[in-house]
Amino acid sequence: MTSLKHHPLDQLLAFYRLMVTIREFELRAAGERKAGLVPGFLHACVGQEATAVGACAALNAEDVITSTHRGHGHLIAKGGDPRFMMAELAGKTSGYCGGKGGSLHLADFDLGVLGANGIVAGGIPMAVGAGLAFQMRREPRVALAFFGDGAVNEGAFHEAANLAGLWKLPVIFFCENNLYGEGTPQHKQAPIRDLSLRAAGYGFPGVIVDGNDVVAVYEITLDAVERARKGDGPTFIEAKTYRQRGHYEGDPMIYRTEEEMAYWRARDPILGFRKRLEEEMEVEPAALDAVDAEVKALLDEAVQFAIHSPAPRPEAALEGVYADDHGGRVF
């Protein structure tokens, strides 16, 4: 386990705040889905907060990420505003995508978030293309592709990793191995347990990290980012973690045992980190409780913002397809 003492307390507290924000966002979004504010699919990343926060903390503002169907944490970790996120989940005009995308397509190009994705592995080639542009323009930027353990069995992952390895692109392949691809365990989807082994075939390093240890994730991603910025090419990071909720909100989860879930809840990334902050960094529990309370207030505000934002006009459905619609002749 990595030592917290190497890191400024401010940064550690920022990690804590972001992880709690992601957790609270997911729980509130799930609640608002049941309450009817959120009409569509939700794929919560509860249990995986440390991967999003640790990885994005290693990036600069001008670096970009591609995200997944389980992408709320990535966007929050890259600076996303929970108000615009919740509004998007509610399908409102004030949402990140004006209500056109929903949870699965959250994007903010100003923050370098090229998009969540409804297609498993769909965003990985995109990250490779962004890395290609950075390399061609001699910009010291990197692209980080988040994806799950299911994605490494898709052709798009293979093609993208091969291209990035071949051209030594500044790309980080960040695999959140949460042990399940939808309702089927990882070991029934690939003949290997350590997915980072795949990297060898693409000519770049594959490393494994405890995905529930935010500081370990941060440190290992920093190494990969440094390598990419130096021009040494991609790294495959496999963060071992666990999806505490279902594949989607409403998933009956008949495919796993209560014992397994309890095992992982005992290794919860937020509770574990909180305990370490208290023990190793001597942070007062009250200070962390205060962070929790501030985050709850922030999410209260986000939900209220979503509720009180206007719904789009129906005709807005016809807008935003093309940059130039040739006077409507594209339709």
Binding site: L114, P125, G129, A143, A156
Partner: peptide, 25 residues
Amino acid sequence: ERVRDTPISEAAIVGAGLGAALVGM
């Protein structure tokens, strides 16, 4: 650099084109 032979890899060719386009190419 600007006339790039790629692997036989159509998903990566198109997807990388998209990613590059999204960041200004």
